[in-house]
């Protein structure tokens, strides 16, 4: 690239601008050829030589995740075991925080019901008023009613805690309660 070798090309003069006859930089040519070779190999691999499609790659990745999830034991607690968990003040306190952050938007700050139903009265749509049923509804959601599943958004302990919090508010008298929905459960 020494300037002494620069040669202006005869006859190339455009409004006073002239041009040198320098060769293409070798590294530049090599880079260009390299990317072209890469392009060919890459394209042939995926289009001709049966390289995996995006769909296949995704399927493998999702299967991997499913395997991990399936390997975790699903510990479903009984009604009595949940009774113990629900009595724990620490759980109720944690549940209150979770409730304020995630649930209050639809069920109201005082659980009185806004978009979603009232959670302090004796009327239940899906759970029959059982602790197991409540935990299940929080975890799995009710797609057709717009209740989202929380099992991917909350940890297992948080789901138990927030249900404990709801249970602890049983029978409280919030202002402006939403009208009852579902069946009256006398035992709740």
């Amino acid at each position: 690239m020494s300037q002494d070798n620069d040669k202006e090309i005869k006859g190339h003069d455009y409004d006073g601008i002239t041009e040198y006859d320098n060769p293409l930089p070798v590294w530049w040519v090599a880079g260009f050829i390299g990317t072209v070779i890469f392009a060919f190999i890459y394209f042939l691999h995926y289009q001709i030589a049966d390289g995996p499609t995006l769909k296949q790659d995704l399927k493998v990745a999702l299967a991997e995740i499913e395997k991990v999830k399936a390997a975790q034991p699903a510990d479903i607690l009984s009604e009595d075991e949940l009774g113990v968990v629900f009595n724990d003040q620490k759980n109720i306190a944690l549940g209150g925080q979770v409730y304020a952050g995630k649930c209050a938007v639809c069920h109201g700050n005082d659980l009185q019901g806004v978009i979603g139903p009232n959670l302090v009265d004796q009327y239940w749509i899906h759970t029959k008023g059982t602790k197991v049923g409540m935990v299940h509804t929080v975890a799995e959601g009710v797609a057709e009613k717009g209740m989202p599943p929380w099992k991917d958004l909350l940890k297992g302990t948080e789901i138990l805690a927030v249900t404990a919090f709801i249970y602890s508010k049983k029978g409280s008298n919030p202002v402006n309660p939403k009208a009852p929905q579902g069946d009256k459960i006398e035992t709740y």
Binding site: I17, T18, E19, Y20, N22, L24, W28
Partner: peptide, 23 residues
Amino acid sequence: YYVPKVVNRPVYSYRLSIIHFWA
């Protein structure tokens, strides 16, 4: 146009201009 004009120097490589333009 403006870089060689302002610094009053010849364009580095005419051949490079051709190749990189078409590519």
